[in-house]
Amino acid sequence: MRIGKWTRPGGEVGPAELVLRLTAIELLLRPMGPWFIKPFVLLLAGLALVAPQVLRAPVTWLALALLVAGRLIADWPLPDNHIYLLAYWCLAAGLALQAPDIRSPLALTARLLIGFAFFFAVSWKALLSPDYLDGRFFRVTLLTDERFADAVLLFGGLSQKQLAENRQYLEPLPEGAELLHPPELVEPAAFQALVLLSTWGTLLIEAAIAVLFLLKVRGALATARHALLLLFCVATYAFAPVAGFGWLLLVMGLAQCREQEIWLRRSYVTVYFLVLIYSEVPWAAVALRGLGPLG
């Protein structure tokens, strides 16, 4: 087997080069893994950005897939789900770069990875989880997760004092114990609406994305598929602190765009950097301070 098969792409890389560069940027922005993995991931990702031969070599991405898989094994079962997706995506890039037509297999893999990831996400929410559809998940998460606190104060109609008392309510007591003056759970209409919107809005948009990406669609449905994915990323990653997942989804969405779909490609790149800003700017806290006494 010739070495060239692994060190040179099988065909013209073209627009896929941007996809690979954005993937390399993500690897640099979110370094991962134990000491015997992280430096090599950073090295390969950095070299890929500065050396086009490294960026386009199938072996680069196959090596990255192996390193990310190594991280999954070394840290099992702690890695987040998007690390698995990252391993699959690096593998996909390495395999596609060997083909004479790189875009088609990369686009197919990207479409199916998104479709199946959302399929399982929806399956968990709608079928397997005992506490999602009844709203318990978002009721508890919005009240207890500090990362959502600013958003809850901004949109949920709760004051700081009410939020603190709700958190106290949600703490379990030792068996048999009872408080003399137990706190009450306060859930104003705005908070209940936020829970309802979060629960069903998330489920419906994820289900729509799963269906549209798993099916081969054309025309308006193909455009709708991209629009939904972009909307999902714009809305979700403003709150969910998993920018790495968002970047991956956007890169995979971009991989499905044809060269002539200029505005769609620009949209994906724009949202990629919007997610970056989301991850660095505590926009909800800033907005809350801006509202002053109303916040």
């Binding site: 999954l72 079962p77 789900n81 990831a117 996400a121 397997l128 989880s129 508890v140």
Partner: peptide, 24 residues
């Protein structure tokens, strides 16, 4: 998750943000 108690948030099944049964 069904047989060893693995939290749905981990393991590559995309069960995060679906249940309160996470490490938190």
């Amino acid at each position: 998750t069904r047989n060893t108690g693995l939290t749905p948030w981990k393991g590559g099944g995309f069960g995060m943000f679906a249940t309160n049964d996470g490490n938190q």
